[in-house]
Amino acid sequence: MNTNSKELKCFAANIRKMVLEATCNAKSGHPGGSLSAADILAYLYHTEMNIDPKNPADPDRDRFVLSKGHASPALYGALAERGFIPKEDIKTFRNAESYLQGHPDMKGVNGVDMSTGSLGQGISAACGMALAGKLNKKDYRVYSIIGDGECEEGQVWEAAMFAAHYKLDNLTVFLDFNNLQIDGNIRDVMNPTPFDKKFEAFNWNVIVIDGHNFEEIAAAVEKAKATKGMPTIIIANTIKGKGVSFMENQCGWHGTAPSVEQCEMGTAELDEYINSLGGAL
């Protein structure tokens, strides 16, 4: 695959535009951690996962669990861009009439494989899906994104033990390492680092990448697929708010929605970026 493709970059930029649109219209939500995870989601939903919007419940499909469920705007953006849900529904995010809940609801949204939002639980559910795949003799793979702050939850480490114990080599977890949680830098609030040594000690295959570099994301996923007998954690160094200049590396944008003006400014930046790639597809 061509990881430098304009199409993939546009896919990611469009996710980011939808993150702004969703949170701006809702006047709430979590743009910062949605933007940091956007490139990983773009790669998975554009390039990697064996999924079909026409058959979202296919028992043989690859699964994705957004363990950091508050990044739902980015997941909805990926699902809209991939054709699972209509793009015009993005603006209904968090409205009482909408099916697009603040945190992903598997019962309400085509393409959402697990309801998440309470941190620590999604990675365990992903373990369950991966082990069920082995027991049910299915070839699908399971992907999940966890947050760096989320790793302060003890359940993440229960899941880490479980995945290694059952040799879940069909499970690939991305750690969105954007350094910031609600109350500040993760090292100041409750330091969960070092991630690489911890996951190594838990008997995982550990890969560290730039989470905004598609070549590195692709190479890491290929390495994960080739690794047998152990689960893989891809520690993705990311920038919270990535792609919207005034949101980058600001923990204040964890759970604050952009105003209409800010949304327009951010969207203009992203449109400019898309134009620099040679225009929208």
Binding site: S124, G128, L131, N136, K138, Q155, F162
Partner: peptide, 24 residues
């Protein structure tokens, strides 16, 4: 089809959820 989840009940219940989401 028996899986020991060890002394980690929270993880066990979420694992169960993931498995049931796959039809079990």
């Amino acid at each position: 089809r028996f899986i020991n989840a060890g002394i980690a009940e929270g993880n066990m219940l979420s694992v169960a959820a993931g498995m049931s989401a796959c039809g079990n």
